[in-house]
Amino acid sequence: MNETTRNRLVVLAIVAALLFGYPTFAVFDAFGRCCLAGALPLWIFLAWATVIACTFAIVGGRTGERRRR
């Protein structure tokens, strides 16, 4: 795994930490209370899935990098 990929993963981890934390929460929590019940859990699971998809794209699946090599 090259340095760029590692750096991308570190950045993604930081972004994920922000996605799952304040103030993103405050926004969706408020939305859940005023307009759409369940908006907060829905947001968490969507953000979670997005982070997984991004990780998959970065590390290239099981043999992606090996194949590229």
Binding site: T5, V10, A13, A16, F20, I44, W48, T55
Partner: peptide
């Protein structure tokens, strides 16, 4: 406590992103 159970799984998720850096 609703979604209070989630942090216990979000923490490892974030660590898993760092597997190729930390675990390797």
């Amino acid at each position: 406590a609703g979604i209070a159970f989630l942090p216990i799984y979000l923490g490892p998720t974030i660590v898993a992103l760092l597997f190729p850096v930390l675990l390797a």
